[in-house]
């Protein structure tokens, strides 16, 4: 059981013109086993929310709290947050030249568990996760994200989700740039993960398309650094029909 509690989170980034506030007080509780979708127009701050929770150094927390089962997440280093159960799938996964996927995954798993994975089951687990994401086994020998297509990068993120098995998945625009076949594969991966016990997902997306395959428990509309409205899956349908216009107009 774990609960991620975000209270009045305020975040700013350094710009040439001084600090710029991006999140202006976000409050959100995600209970164990729940899937929340955050939807919003470009520049609304929804990705900032994910990166702030994961601890990206670019963002300064100027107010509010984030706790995981009562533990202060904001006090933790990036790797401590990951060990505490948070996983961030990135919109633009980073290339790490010269480091093979196999080496990367083994290093991550070893750091996570505090011991090296058992060789026999490990190879099987990795190959299985790759296979589910329609990635060739030779993929393991390639450098992390280097020369991957957009779709391969996203499928590689979900394969990591499968293998590293966190409690909380923060998925930042995992659906962007995917064709319909890749979207289905990625959605299946997310649903497999959700089917495990007590897994939570925060799904950040610009489009409603992925919500046809990954059904959220709650939908939040994110505008100008705040949650403008929350509701059930029906809210996504309304957004699909009417877009963000009424929120953007109200937000200004």
């Amino acid at each position: 059981m774990s609960t991620l509690e975000i209270k009045d989170l305020q975040v700013s980034v350094e710009t040439e013109d001084g600090p710029k506030e991006i999140l202006k007080g976000v409050t959100l509780t995600i209970n164990s086993g729940e899937t929340h979708a955050i939807m919003g127009p470009n520049g609304s701050g929804k990705s900032t929310l994910a990166y702030s929770i994961a601890g990206h150094p670019k963002y300064s927390i100027t107010g509010g709290t984030v706790t995981l089962d009562g533990e202060d997440v904001l006090e933790m280093s990036v790797d401590e947050r990951a060990k505490a159960g948070l996983f961030l799938a990135m919109q633009y996964p980073v290339e790490v030249p010269g480091v093979s996927v196999a080496n990367f995954l083994r290093t991550a798993k070893t750091a996570l568990d505090g011991e090296a994975p058992k060789l026999r089951t490990w190879v099987k687990d990795v190959n299985g996760a790759m296979d589910k994401m329609h990635l060739d086994p030779s993929f393991s020998q390639r450098s992390v994200n280097e020369g991957f297509s957009g779709g391969e990068k996203k499928r590689h993120e979900i394969a990591q989700l499968d293998i590293l098995d966190p409690a909380f998945a923060l998925l930042d625009e995992i659906d962007s740039g995917l064709d319909i076949d890749a979207l289905k594969v990625v959605s299946e991966g997310i649903n497999d993960f959700r089917a495990r016990e007590a897994k939570s997902v925060l799904l950040i997306t610009h489009y409603t398309r992925i919500l046809r395959y990954v059904k959220p428990d709650q939908v939040h509309v994110f505008v100008a650094g705040r949650i403008a409205e929350s509701g059930g899956p029906e809210l996504a349908e309304e957004l699909e029909a009417n877009g963000y216009e009424k929120y953007v107009a109200a937000g200004v």
Binding site: K58, V78, A82, P97, G98, V99, A111, L112
Partner: peptide
């Protein structure tokens, strides 16, 4: 060191020291 690379590796539980070591190995590996 590229902050984005270190962040990516650390977000997968890898400590900063270990992440730097991986990046340097990768830098020379090719």
């Amino acid at each position: 060191f590229d902050d984005e690379q270190l962040f990516y590796l650390q977000s997968r539980s890898i400590s900063e020291t270990e992440a730097k070591r991986l990046v340097v190995h990768g830098f020379f590996n090719d």
